[in-house]
Design a protein around this nucleic acid. Sequence first.
RNA 1: GCCCAUGUAGCUCAGUUGGUUAGAGCGCAUCCUUGGUAAGGAUGAGGUCGGCGGUUCAAAUCCGCUCGUGGGCUCCA
Length: 636
Amino acid sequence: MPKIIYKEKEYKVESGNFLDFFKNIGEKIEDILIVKFNGKLLDLTAQISESGEIVPVTFDSEEGREVYWHSTSHIMAAAVKRLFKDVKVTIGPAISEGFYYDFDRATPFTEEDLLKIEKEMEKIIKEGHKFVREEIDIEKAKDMFKKMGEDYKIEILNEIKDNKVSIYKTENFIDLCRGPHIDNSAKVKSIKLLKLAGAYWRGDEKNKMLQRIYGISFPDKKLLDDYLKRLEEARQRDHRKLGKELDLFSTHDEFGPGLIYWHPKGAIIRKEIEDFWREEHLKRGYEILYTPHVAKIDLWHKSGHTSFYKENMYPPMRMDEMEYLVKPMNCPFHILIYKTSLRSYRELPLRWCELGTVYRYEKSGVLHGLMRVRGFTQDDAHIFMTEEQLEQEIINVIDMITFVLKTFGFYEYEIFLSTKPKDSIGEARVWELAENALKQALAKAGLKYDIDEGGGAFYGPKIDIKIKDALNRTWQCSTIQVDFNMPERFDVKYIGEDGKEHRTIMIHRALLGSFERFFGVLIEHYKGAFPVWLSPIQVSILTITERVKDYAENIFNKLKEKKIRIILNNANETIGAKIRNSTLQKIPFMLIIGDKEQQKNVVSVRKRSGEEQKDVNIDDFFNMLLKKIEQKELDI
RNA sequence: GCCCAUGUAGCUCAGUUGGUUAGAGCGCAUCCUUGGUAAGGAUGAGGUCGGCGGUUCAAAUCCGCUCGUGGGCUCCA
């Protein structure tokens, strides 16, 4: 007789499933979705046949949510099958937030269809259908799905090696599925179908385009409302919206999509970032380079770009019967500089950085505001070194990345090690060498990471660092790439201590990635309310009456001379309107000046948050401001 | 590139089944008001309704093509 441990108590179970067990001991099963039994995730309806410990899995855990959303996708598929006879089902997994299901249908779904499907799902939920698991012979499954006309399921079945497969029945709907699932559709309380999209079968653009429906569900209406509120908040801080409102940048789509125009207010932020960036590089032993934007096609043949990066490059320009290509990367140029003289081991490592503007052709459908563009400036660098120096240099770069990102208020990262892609240059042995160097450096730095199989650059593996913003979303910016191949192609070498030639090794790296993307991330992270050192306008002076015009101008000039970015609003408006405008522009500090301030020779300081301090001496204010700017303080 | 949605004033958006000189708010300009902590008032300028072609007595509205944008797929800093 199986012995069950649950909540540190022991029970003897004669027969039945987990559902029966919970019922027998009077446990509420409403919140329990599945169980973890001896480490395995099982349906509540699974029979208890061995001893073990039960851990209930609820919506509060990642595993619970996954099952919950996956089950909801089955409910959606059931609803779609009820409503539309001409639909073939494919797959419908849970994703990090919600679920989707891909359908094959001759005519795409419409927005109205979505509402209908949602209603039908609610019906199915109300009807309280059981999820019934069955294990059947694979051949029988093939017959069954064939009869149902579900070709995609047969394609999946043909790839399964086992003799038995599991299927789940939910009312009229039968799906090939590993499970586990919730026991009853009634456990889903609140659903919302979010968007329609096209998606290739198995993610391959050569395959048929399917109709994907995204949705999400929660065990409580309030959780759904919270989620929708969070989506709305993300919309509010969309960098495209804020970029327009705060006059930071624009695109001129009819004259070239994916190309960014930096307005004065965006450009000053970029200048501040660049100044900080250059200073930090000089401190850390880098030297600055400038290189051209184009080079003859021969250079790109030599680097391998014309064969391995062709898709991303703009077609050649003809000049003097020669073909020139606009650069998609800076590395070949830096290599050319390296090769202008014979290098000694004594010179290495050479750390060369450049704010290099590159152009890459991106498919029209992937362009997105500042995040995905066709022309951008990388904060690029190439480190030329000996093999012995490699590990330390990687560690140095990681340290620099965390320092720089911290300065902008990013403290959390996800780290990925990306390995050899399908299209790549160089021998497997060399790739392994490079990958090991990255792994060891990560281990030494004590950093945890995931592997991104096949995600490397064509010339070498890389570490990608994704930062988390204020809404916990991740963005890929920083990258460190180890390259043994490009030096090989260009015969990059140094003279060693032994007087012989040795192969130089290269690191390609970017901290911010590109100014465009990083700026987009920054805008969203701060919701447009930049710290003082970055704010396009740091202080606005707001006058209450024209009588104080001279006094205000005095203060304006005094701060302007000290290089504070300041504006004076003397306009014929009420103070309320001036405060509102300044606040909407997210200017960190307002100095409010009326007769009283003039008499006492002070100012009234109001932060954009609304917090206010009266009767402030102007020198005290300036000193406080200067400290915040110099220390790059994040809070105002 | 592919699927779906979409393009009206500088911005955000109305515009009913095709029917006179296409509307609103914000912003902008001018004037009045000199106002004490998130919108004072009045007047005015501003649009060949993304572009090209078609259907029609008549097109912002219907159709086709085209250039963009948004959400996805694929790809990436």
